[in-house]
Write a protein that binds this DNA or RNA. Structure first.
Lengths: 234, 234
DNA sequence: CCTTATTTGTACGTATGTATC
DNA sequence: TGATACATACGTACAAATAAG
């Protein structure tokens, strides 16, 4: 599986923009030298990248980057609709579940609610360029957000539905990031293989120092790399 | 594989401190209700957690959290030695490779160096409580860091070795985060199984607006969750 | 247009580890 | 245990397309 780690490495360097679209990769021989492997091992990795449309190769000329980088910025102003860098089309949401119910212990704790409080639960898929990027579940306090579910159904965007409930601005307070493996269920939602690496975030947004959203998201690591940029997060 | 996602979820909630050490988990019946599955499915997940020493269970009493959470803060002041929250012992480094060589293209670009510049390469394992947490490779510009390798060998810490070269302070400029699977080689270094989910970071540190370190690190997702905290990153 | 060097593509062979029967 | 098949990784050689002069 040596070729796999080389594949992942090259894919990451393309996804994060270190090799830019149209740019020529180093030659197979150079890459083999860089990774300390045989040329065939590099070719195996390149073949996989080409099969996924990440690069294309021209005999006698070289290997070139085909895709645009897809990075997801993590910072104070993290919003799904704006943080997918270089997405060709506007990202869209598809909702799988919209309901209001009693909060469990972890939700109460994160949203700083009383023990019998109700919450809005929003589960859905975030798509960019018609490919599923993230499977998310977001929890909102029900009390200050009357009519939120209805606003969400018509608006199709979290930010605008919050705006309809007079939450005009909010900030990302904290983001936890872990890695997990795709289960059969998430593999269906994210159109990936069981066992593929995923990034999971658990995040808390607040508005005027009041917790307003507690969300859990799964991102396919195949499509997305997170970027924490201390310059632009301020 | 339903039990796996429940296992991952509980493990994350323990790792990130939502369930604290010594604290009692909800009962198996409550958990079964929360996840909408049969109690046996929850038991399967719990069994796995117990086998890994994450929780312990007492008949008639309940299930309790055994481990301390290990979270790794990502922010301006990210340093391995200080960012492992709740580590019982001071983290240590074990070096696998210390050398000086010519930089490749990506290294030149990130460190903003001329095309024939040399770099110090430091590869090693970061340990906390004697268990391997991260496998890292860091690249430093050689020109402004004369005697860095020697300082590193005697100091055993990146920060103090940099201080010996008159780099008294530095800041994390950018962190990229992706998820990959453990290959046989990394499985050895991180004492995990092949195919386990890993977090990989690629980060750039600078001192006085000059790039000073470009590093790639693999973290075992079993032991670590990243936290991007907008409060404390400032 | 030809030559030459570069670079990808293809085809052999060898060795090793792993899974299966 | 042995036999077989398969995937991985390395080595070498050469054909075919491209780029540069």
């Amino acid at each position: 599986m040596l070729w796999r780690s080389i594949h992942d490495r090259l894919h990451e360097e393309i996804a994060t923009g270190h090799y830019k679209p149209g740019e020529k990769l180093p030659t197979e021989t150079e890459l083999a030298c860089r990774f300390g492997v045989n040329r065939h091992t590099v070719r195996h990795a390149i073949t996989e990248l080409r099969d996924h449309g990440i690069v294309y190769s021209r005999r006698g000329s070289g290997i070139f980057v085909a895709t645009k980088p897809m990075t997801y910025k993590i910072g104070r102003k993290t919003r799904f609709s704006k943080n997918l860098v270089h997405a060709q089309q506007a990202p869209t949401l598809r909702f799988l579940r919209l309901e209001t119910r009693h909060a469990d212990k972890i939700e109460l704790e994160n949203l700083a609610l009383g023990r019998t409080a109700e919450v809005h639960v929003v589960e859905g898929i975030g798509l960019s360029n018609n490919i599923p990027i993230t499977h998310f579940t977001s929890i909102f306090p029900a009390a200050p957000l009357d009519g939120f579910i209805e606003a969400l159904e018509s608006a199709g965007s979290i930010s605008t539905a919050l705006a309809a409930c007079n939450i005009l601005d909010y900030e990302r307070l904290r983001t936890e990031i872990t890695a997990v493996l795709a289960t059969p269920e998430t593999a269906i939602h994210l159109a990936c293989q069981v066992g593929d690496p995923l990034l999971r975030t658990r995040s808390l947004n607040q508005s005027n120092n009041v917790p307003i959203e507690f969300g859990t998201s799964l991102f396919s690591a195949k499509h997305i790399a997170f970027v924490v940029d201390e310059d632009s997060s301020a």
